[in-house]
Design a protein around this nucleic acid. Sequence first.
DNA 1: AGCACATCCTTCGAGTCTCGAAGCATCGCT
DNA 2: AGCGATGCTTCGAGACTCGAAGGATGTGCT
Lengths: 138, 138
Amino acid sequence: MDLLAVVAAAHEISMRAEDRIGPLLALHRLTPPTAHALWSIDPSEPPPSMKLMADRLYCNAPNLTFLVNQLVDRGLVTRATDPSDRRSRVLTLTSRGREVREELVSTMLQVTPFAVLDPSELSQLAALLTRVTDASAG
Amino acid sequence: MDLLAVVAAAHEISMRAEDRIGPLLALHRLTPPTAHALWSIDPSEPPPSMKLMADRLYCNAPNLTFLVNQLVDRGLVTRATDPSDRRSRVLTLTSRGREVREELVSTMLQVTPFAVLDPSELSQLAALLTRVTDASAG
DNA sequence: AGCACATCCTTCGAGTCTCGAAGCATCGCT
DNA sequence: AGCGATGCTTCGAGACTCGAAGGATGTGCT
C-alpha cells in the first residue's frame, strides 16, 4: 500500500528537517513550536490575531499565549490591542523578528530534504501537495 | 519558488494529521511523541534497542528513556536486557501494545490528508518521497 | 438603555517533553 | 588487569500542552 509509505516518508522528512534546523533554532533560543509560530507571522500580510494564529498552528488559546510570550520575551514579536475589536490582540514582528524569521526560512530551504529534487520534480510534488491541502481543507 | 510551497504544504499536512489523530491518542493516554515511539516499534521485526530507537526518532538518550518509560507505564512495551550485549535494552510490544499500535496505524491511514489522493497520484507521490528520503539519507 | 450570551484572551495547575551534565554497567582491546 | 568507548539512566532546569476558571469586550434582544 502506497498510502502507508507516503505517510511514513512524509513524517521521516519532517523529522529530518527539524533535526537539521535545530542548531539554528538553538542559536536564537527557539524551539520547534516557537519557530513554527514565528514562521507563521508573514510580515507582508496584516498582523494576525491570537485567534487566527491558534487556528493556523492547530493549538488552543492558553498554548498560544505561552508561545507568543516566549517570542515577546526574546524580542521577536510585539502584542497590540486591535483598535477595531478591543478583545483581540494582533501580533507584529519586530525588526529583529523579521531578520530571524528570514534567516529561518532561507536556512530551511537549504537544509530541507526536499532540496534534493530538481525543478521538474518539485513542481510535480507541489501540485500533488496543493491538491492534498485543498481537498482536505478543514 | 516551488520549494517553499512544498515545505509549507508538507508541514501543514503533518499538523492536520496530528490534529485529527489527537482524539485517539487521548483515548490511550498517548501524545504525539509517545505515539511516534510506539509507531516505530514494528512487531514483525526484531525488537529494537534503545540506541536504534533514538536514532530513528532523532532524539537523545535521556529523552528516549523518558518516552519508553511512558510506554512501559501504560502497559504497551516491555524492556529486556539484550543477552548478546548486556549494556543494551531491547523493546518488545505487549499484546496490548500491538493492538494499540495497529489501531493507531489504521486510523492514521483513514484520517491522513493524503487519503484524498487516488492510487495513481499516491504512487507518483510515493516515488517522489522515496527519492527524497533515499537521496538525503543521514 | 440594560441584560444575557458569545467571543477573545489570560492565568493557573498538572502532566508531558527535551536536553546537558553526571554517573553506572558492560564491552572491546591491549 | 586496565582503559577508553558505548548504552543506558538519573537529575535538574526549561519548555510545551491542555482543561478549568476568570476578566474584558462585542453582539443581540427587549
